[in-house]
Design a protein around this nucleic acid. Sequence first.
DNA 1: TTGATCGCGTGACCTACATCACATTCAAAA
DNA 2: TTTTGAATGTGATGTAGGTCACGCGATCAA
Lengths: 190, 190
Amino acid sequence: MKAKETLKAYIAKIVELTDEQFEYIYSHFKIQTFKKGQVIISEGSMVDCEYFVISGCLKSFYINDELKMFILQFAMPTWWASDFNALYNRTKATTTLDCITDSEILCISNADREKLCKEIHAVEYFFRWRTNKGYVAAQKRLLSFMNNNVKFRYEELLTLYPELYNIVPKNLIAAYLGVSRETLSRLYHT
Amino acid sequence: MKAKETLKAYIAKIVELTDEQFEYIYSHFKIQTFKKGQVIISEGSMVDCEYFVISGCLKSFYINDELKMFILQFAMPTWWASDFNALYNRTKATTTLDCITDSEILCISNADREKLCKEIHAVEYFFRWRTNKGYVAAQKRLLSFMNNNVKFRYEELLTLYPELYNIVPKNLIAAYLGVSRETLSRLYHT
DNA sequence: TTGATCGCGTGACCTACATCACATTCAAAA
DNA sequence: TTTTGAATGTGATGTAGGTCACGCGATCAA
């Protein structure tokens, strides 16, 4: 029941829906549970769903030719995750999505999302709102990346998302900040 | 007439509209012309509109405490520009939008966009689609920023948008790449 | 209980890029 | 026409952060 309530509360903050509408929408989501370390989307595969986190923590990342990992996004409860590029353009995933901790997530297929958007105007509005938020956040991160040094970006991240501090190991934080784990370590030691 | 046709053709690629629908939508846009160097949105002011470029070229940028400029976005014909963060969150602009060359643009207010989105489902779809595209592009740029050196990013930019090469001075390209103009210059000289 | 792997710290050295300073060219403004 | 100020090139030097190498404790599967 928790998953349903979580999604309902989240959507209700943005758009008003009748209970029947929400039940109908919810019927298109499937709940899934994953263990720490399990892969949800693997690089090179087709992507069919996007995911809404109920509990736990995910990361989406890219690994380059030199096997260096870059984290595009963490996903904590009530955050959305997928390989959106692959999902929208119907191409193969260039990133991997996996679990930092045991996680419970709701998934909805691309086709079902589009169907719901068509059927219910409020759903279309909701997803437009959500992507807007993501777009603005991505722009801000980009700007911070160009403008600020590692220490500032690290502290900014922890101010924005203090939950991460206790859950996400520092080497992954470093991969998110686009910096080596050694440099991150040296910020406060040495 | 060119502005109208340009917008119509652009929207038609994404959603189907009747001529009356388009006329109605178009009636909410205002055409404006600006000279090279003119400011459209200035940092610190309230932002009420977003802009669709018909001709010319814009840049949106941020200036930090040390007076260093970072370019968030260029906008060529058929691209959209604004301070989206300020626009959506009804806060003061943190970025400036101005003209790299003489430009002709269509503007639509936030209120009118929301009104049209409510009135015409297809418009809501259209703007969701557009933001999606922007979001994915921003994620890609972020990843490239973390992963690639200046030379790669410069060539990537010119491959993606060859139009920029002839129009945008190199010091602005440098500000977009997040690198000093000297370093950009030294990529191919020295 | 024991390897083995992971997360983390730390020293030594390297490099991409920044900064500052100055010169040149060229177009716009006066 | 003259002047001003962008836009650009280039040398000298500084520095944030990368890379490599190693150690050490904690956790976890066998």
